[in-house]
Nucleic acid binder design. Sequence first.
DNA 1: CATGAATGAGTCTTCATTCAT
DNA 2: AATGAATGAAGACTCATTCAT
Lengths: 214, 214, 214, 214
Amino acid sequence: MGIKEDKKKETVRRIREAATRAFAESGYEGARMDRIAESAGVNKAMLYYHVGDKDALYTWVLHGVFGDITARMEKNISESESPVGKIKAYIRSIGQTLEKHPNLLRIMMREMASSGSHFPELVAADMASIIGRIGDIIRQGHQQGVFRDVDPLVLHLMVMGGISYLKASSTIRSKHAELLHGVSDTKGVEDVFDMLNRVESIVLGALRAQHAEE
Amino acid sequence: MGIKEDKKKETVRRIREAATRAFAESGYEGARMDRIAESAGVNKAMLYYHVGDKDALYTWVLHGVFGDITARMEKNISESESPVGKIKAYIRSIGQTLEKHPNLLRIMMREMASSGSHFPELVAADMASIIGRIGDIIRQGHQQGVFRDVDPLVLHLMVMGGISYLKASSTIRSKHAELLHGVSDTKGVEDVFDMLNRVESIVLGALRAQHAEE
Amino acid sequence: MGIKEDKKKETVRRIREAATRAFAESGYEGARMDRIAESAGVNKAMLYYHVGDKDALYTWVLHGVFGDITARMEKNISESESPVGKIKAYIRSIGQTLEKHPNLLRIMMREMASSGSHFPELVAADMASIIGRIGDIIRQGHQQGVFRDVDPLVLHLMVMGGISYLKASSTIRSKHAELLHGVSDTKGVEDVFDMLNRVESIVLGALRAQHAEE
Amino acid sequence: MGIKEDKKKETVRRIREAATRAFAESGYEGARMDRIAESAGVNKAMLYYHVGDKDALYTWVLHGVFGDITARMEKNISESESPVGKIKAYIRSIGQTLEKHPNLLRIMMREMASSGSHFPELVAADMASIIGRIGDIIRQGHQQGVFRDVDPLVLHLMVMGGISYLKASSTIRSKHAELLHGVSDTKGVEDVFDMLNRVESIVLGALRAQHAEE
DNA sequence: CATGAATGAGTCTTCATTCAT
DNA sequence: AATGAATGAAGACTCATTCAT
């Protein structure tokens, strides 16, 4: 029985992995159920047996991957005391997650691009919970006088957007490297830590109150 | 003959419009040749006659729309003298273009998400030219002592990424408004000028040298 | 062991019931092994273990249900002495059986419609036995001078056909009632006894010799 | 253009024929779009292009074939003056139609068997019109004193039911001939005219008032 | 006896693309 | 330059059947 369960879990795990990869690489429309099954090493009908139709599969994948983010972030944030430390932890969490799930990034961008036409309620809830967490941090910082009052949604979208475009563009950049040659010195941006440092600096700068705008 | 040519141009113009809309709304895979033809009011075979297959159509649409951006930006930037003015003009250009071509935004995001699997050489050249232009401005500002030396590619991607996510998320946000209720006060972000102001402030802040990072 | 056998019998009984219902409602092609198993409350593989494949299941169901008819008819007929009484008993038997097994009707009609493509030998034998029995009655009545010599097959088919269409059409009639409104006064036909009376009258009329045909 | 139209008509005609045959032989569920296309000698996609999906195809076939019946019956009936002649014409019409469209018979039986689960509104209207016509005849005969007042729906169903079962059973009968050997003398029933004569005699007998029921 | 997981051959439907006119 | 008809290769999803436990 324990063995049986392991076998089932193994199958389900492989489906999830293959599906996540497929949706990330090709998007909802582009992903093929056939390919997902094949690349998971299971029979096509098993997708329907274990998970459901394409929509269900997509929701399941998204929820799984967003759940991961939320969990990791929660853990990282709670390890810091100061608001600044928590913001740093928040940015590191995103960096780590995107590093571990390069697929999530693409799925999210696609969803944004299609105005969330496949965006399931379940996942929207995950996202709202993340934004709520950021709001808590900003409020705390604001009360301690170290932060300006900034909309957490806007902040989160800028962080995600920036990191997304930076990471996502790397393939295109290397693909068309000769065109950019001499135009941009992108050394260092492939280095994830460096990239996160730059983002961190901008975000903390934006959060601090003493900015005199022109 | 002149009349005939006008007729042809008109047909081609309608194809471009319909195709742009379709690719923006549904992405490369999601767009249907049938629908494009129908919504352009022409016969399906005409798409192939005038433009070519789906790939060719896509390249053509992308090139057209990126050409638009480049041209507008070139014009706006050259009207300002100071680097700061030029950067502002650059950000305004992007804002205006995305406002005028809400489709471009989605197409770009999709391309990013799919790591440019359909990204044609032609369009990569357009993009490189934009980044080159930004590089010129930064270099000029650096020589005048008002700017730090910042990678134009990184800057451009952050600007594009931020604006993209902000604009793109508006539909999702309103779709799942009840979930965000109380979490974020997004009033004002629907206002494009306000949004661009915030981005401008951040970008100019990031460009200035006097930041003391933690 | 007796308990075990009861358990087995119970399982088999439930399979038969569920299968009969399914085949009647959806026909051979329309019936689903999954649903049959589920609605019988047993595992799908049990259908194969206890009965066999879909074909076998179908044959088994048909035979069971035809056997029912034959048995009941045999009993009813033997209770009457006169040929007229026996014919009446025969018609009542059919009426009662179709009343008790509304499914049989549909299965039979389907089989007729598909020219017996699934009609198994076993069931054909059941049917031949019924017709033989009717032949006996008619022969007896003919010898007594009360009946014309009529082909039992033709008679049986007309009785079955008439009753079938009358009963089967009731759903369609009520479904499209508004269309028939004013066209036909079908009150009374929903009443089974009334319906059988009409059939009886026609059949006995057709059997009597004194008809002067035009 | 005329040629083109002929070509199209020819294609559509072949689709109709093949579809009618398929639905008749195998029923709605049993019929395969693949086979229909193949047996019509056209590409599968043409079914969808010219007619629509399986449901649409079925409705179209049924309506076409019922339209045929109605038209033929209308013509035949109007050629007779007396109610008796009209009833005979009505029966002949059904006989002729079923002779010409052996498929219609099976389709109808199937629909009856499945309680009209696929029976489209359109076709129900056709049928109501037929029954209305019979009602007219009976009323006329009643006013002339030659007919009893009989429900046209019941009459029609008995005629259809009887003829249906007689014709439909012929395949089964020959398939299992050895079982019926000696039981029934079915010679003559294969002869359509003879069969119709018997039905006619019964129907007219049932319509006449002087029956003394037991 | 019984079960859940697995399989492969379909089944309907759609789509990009081409051809004849 | 334009059209309606045609095509073949998928695509999502289902189903009867079997197997390991």
